[in-house]
């Protein structure tokens, strides 16, 4: 991908850096942009900022993952059984009723429509389903999951079963927002830090930055529900094609 910075020397590198420094206080820009390979043009332009994130990104990430050995969920309905590991929690407000959102999500076969790194989910009967996540270089990670908690229109909790490539558990909560302003959808995910082939797959599944992945999955969910499609520029006409 050709970039302004490659073709125009320092000027744009400078401006990207300036913009990054604008938000460097929160380290969020360096953090966010670093995770996003689709932004080759930004990454290529960051130059010094990449060094900067090297210095500061690590611990930010570590913190944001909320790595913990304690299970702070004392609500027994919530399925986060693998107390050790990585925990991610993200919320998004979506303009739809809790019932509609719950119904869409409860049909697990819908999940790959907005969870970018899921290849497929097949309901195998009862509360069970089989999940396939896309791994690097065509490899896949697979697991069977079961629903362990469910309150219609409020929450769904699931966890993986014995023999999974990745031990994981998750829950999604649907809570009406104030003033009839849609529904707050909160996802809590927890998984064992993986190793080996499965490790590679999971780091792709949840990315280097699980918070970011969950956030973007939720954003896609919101867009499908609110607009019926996903905003895209992939395949548009430009002066590069």
């Amino acid at each position: 991908m050709e970039t302004s910075t490659q073709t125009h020397g320092q000027t744009n590198v400078g401006s990207v850096e300036r913009w990054l420094s604008v938000v460097a206080g929160s380290a969020l820009a360096a953090y966010g942009i670093r995770r996003r390979s689709i932004a080759g043009f930004v990454v290529a332009g960051i130059g010094g900022a990449l060094v900067h994130r090297g210095a500061t990104g690590r611990c930010m990430v570590y913190e944001s993952l909320g790595i913990t050995t304690a299970d702070e969920q004392d609500d027994s309905r919530i399925s986060v059984p693998y107390g050790k590991g990585i925990r991610v929690e993200k919320s998004m407000t979506i303009d739809a009723s809790a019932a509609d959102l719950y119904t869409f999500w409860r049909d697990f076969e819908n999940l790959p429509r907005f969870m970018k790194n899921l290849e497929s989910v097949k309901v195998t009967g009862g509360n069970r389903s089989h999940w396939i996540a896309k791994g690097p270089l065509g490899s896949n990670a697979e697991w069977d999951a079961e629903i362990i908690n469910e309150i219609p229109n409020e929450l769904i909790g699931w966890r993986s079963l014995e023999g999974s490539d990745i031990n994981n558990a998750g829950s999604v909560h649907f809570t009406p927002a104030t003033g009839g302003r849609g529904t707050v959808v909160k996802v809590v995910l927890r998984y064992d830090p993986p190793g080996g082939v499965a490790g590679a797959a999971i780091s792709r599944l949840l990315g280097e930055d699980p918070e970011y992945q969950v956030q973007e999955d939720l954003r896609r969910f919101k867009r499908i529900i609110e607009t019926g499609e996903l905003a895209t520029i992939d395949g548009q006409s430009t002066g590069r094609n």
Binding site: T3, S4, V16, W19, T238, G239
Partner: peptide
């Protein structure tokens, strides 16, 4: 050149 994330060839 005041706005970052422009790419050569953007319409």
């Amino acid at each position: 050149g005041f706005v970052p994330t422009m790419m050569r060839g953007d319409i």
